[in-house]
């Protein structure tokens, strides 16, 4: 296995359920987490809708995969960037999103926030800083 740790950014721009992109992205992230790489997730445009609380899919007969985002911390995915402008354009704020955390093994499993609210300019810098960007 390669010793080089690359910095992977998964860029999520689609709403959940209307298309399969959101779930596919999540599956690829979980599979990719088996390899020791530096993984970040970005939620931009309609992608921010993936993280809303209170998703209930029984009436539409689809799998509700919103609880799976809470497992990301277990998979060592600790950096989830959400774009502020994308939220605002959609009438949302951080309070409308799930609270995602990861546990820091080195600090007696202290719970730490995974979600970081960033501006569009900061998001551009995050994209520039990534070695590889996977788009969904």
């Amino acid at each position: 296995m390669s010793e080089t740790i690359k910095n992977f950014l998964y860029l999520n721009r689609k709403a959940p359920y209307g298309t399969i992109y959101a779930w596919e992205s999540l599956e690829v992230v979980l599979i990719g987490a088996a390899f020791d790489q530096d993984v970040s997730l970005a939620f931009v445009d309609d992608g921010v809708f993936q993280l809303t609380k209170n998703q209930h899919t029984s009436a539409v007969g689809m799998k509700n995969f919103s609880p799976t985002y809470a497992a990301l911390g277990d998979y060592e995915v600790k950096k989830v960037f959400v774009e502020k402008e994308s939220l605002e354009e959609r009438g949302l704020s951080l309070d409308d999103l799930q609270h995602l955390t990861w546990e820091d093994e080195d600090e007696d499993w202290a719970e730490k926030d995974s979600i970081h609210l960033v501006t569009r300019a900061e998001m551009a810098a995050i994209m520039d800083g990534a070695d590889v960007v996977f788009s969904f």
Partner: peptide, 8 residues
């Protein structure tokens, strides 16, 4: 039940 996936 909690996460809707089987863990790796």
């Amino acid at each position: 039940e909690e996460y809707q996936i089987a863990p790796a």
